[in-house]
Design a protein around this nucleic acid. Sequence first.
DNA 1: CCAAATCTTGACCAGTTGGTCAAGGTTCCC
DNA 2: GGGAACCTTGACCAACTGGTCAAGATTTGG
Lengths: 224, 224
Amino acid sequence: MRIGEATEIPAADSAVSQKSARARSRAVMEQRILAAAAAVFSEAGFDAATTAAIAERAGLPKANIHYYFRTKELLYQKVLADVLDIWIEQMDLFTTEADPAVALRLYIQAKVALARSYPIESRVFANEMLHGAPYLGRFLGSKLKARVDAIATVFARWAAQGKIAADVDAHHLMFTLWAATQTYADFSVQVGAVLGVDALSEKDYERAAEQLTILVLRGCGLDN
Amino acid sequence: MRIGEATEIPAADSAVSQKSARARSRAVMEQRILAAAAAVFSEAGFDAATTAAIAERAGLPKANIHYYFRTKELLYQKVLADVLDIWIEQMDLFTTEADPAVALRLYIQAKVALARSYPIESRVFANEMLHGAPYLGRFLGSKLKARVDAIATVFARWAAQGKIAADVDAHHLMFTLWAATQTYADFSVQVGAVLGVDALSEKDYERAAEQLTILVLRGCGLDN
DNA sequence: CCAAATCTTGACCAGTTGGTCAAGGTTCCC
DNA sequence: GGGAACCTTGACCAACTGGTCAAGATTTGG
């Protein structure tokens, strides 16, 4: 605390947190470490990431990292869990009642926005997949599969109602949507280099979403 | 050499190789090491890959790896160069004279076939991109950019001739094609898990290519 | 005010890393 | 046949790895 600064009154700051000052401080530290860890894991992958690098990024001694997260593996799992929350989010746009064109447009926009706002998280996820999903394997075959199967059912109903082209396989469409949107985060170096820019701008992401929307909507027979 | 085996006559085996037996043997060894290295790099990425793992995979002592390739970095660069050759290959399908629908169909088929036949190479490439393309950065901004710009010119001519939808941006279309096809190699765990299979079969790849072709051709206004 | 609980951190450890080296084996060419 | 060039490999090394630990600093609740 800086000299002359007023002593904080723990109970004063209302419903924001019922926790003690200690618990709050712990939460802050954990968050700080998790952010640093996500950055390092995204750049290096689990194996190549070093706890020393994470510590430096967090501005803490290495031993302190291990105080809050006993092992590198545990830290990685926490990071992955957070990443997953972000990843799944907007899959409930696809309901039978929804308009296919609207749902697809919104989903693509949301996914591209994610690639722009959370490139680190996207890359952590990509690294995990690329290395055979040793920690997310379970999730993929259970929760994610269930989600996509449900979406496929919705697509089947849409097709039966003539709302969407019947020859589009929802599973493969999702694979394409995931890949096409995440490439703007995971392979942003490649995209930037081919576009001839140092870093992707807001305009670039907007155009990416717009272009993918055009391709997919028309591809699904949704251009009227 | 095994006992009783006839002495080889170097000059005898014609145009296949002008090289001496030594040079040939060296080439074989290098190839063996490169294959092992590609496998290890694809699974671990550059930093996490160990020369010991490469040596074991190649069935050689570690010191022998370093005899043929002085450093891990040099070995990685050779692997990358080979990967790149495979990666660029079929981009010359897009010529003004070609039929857009045929070119796109063939390109997608070729790219999916690549994902199936060369998943290791695809993953090495993906790892390199994901980690910011420290070694391929140059290539991306020069050779690859030039190739894609050329393709964009072809697309513009096609559009001017009314052969393809004018609102499709060739650059972003290529990003989508690359991402959508490579996902069947790089993220095959995810694809497999969602499809509910242990490993992707030939049928799965065929369906992937077919589905992507449907989406893209219709998306480009090429369904007659 | 103080003892218990919690947090911080430099020093340390065994195992692994990429890379070296020298001694010996093999192949080549004259 | 023999010397030179090339190949093979176990032993070795300094640097770094994830993780531990104990001693001290700080905060907490009574």
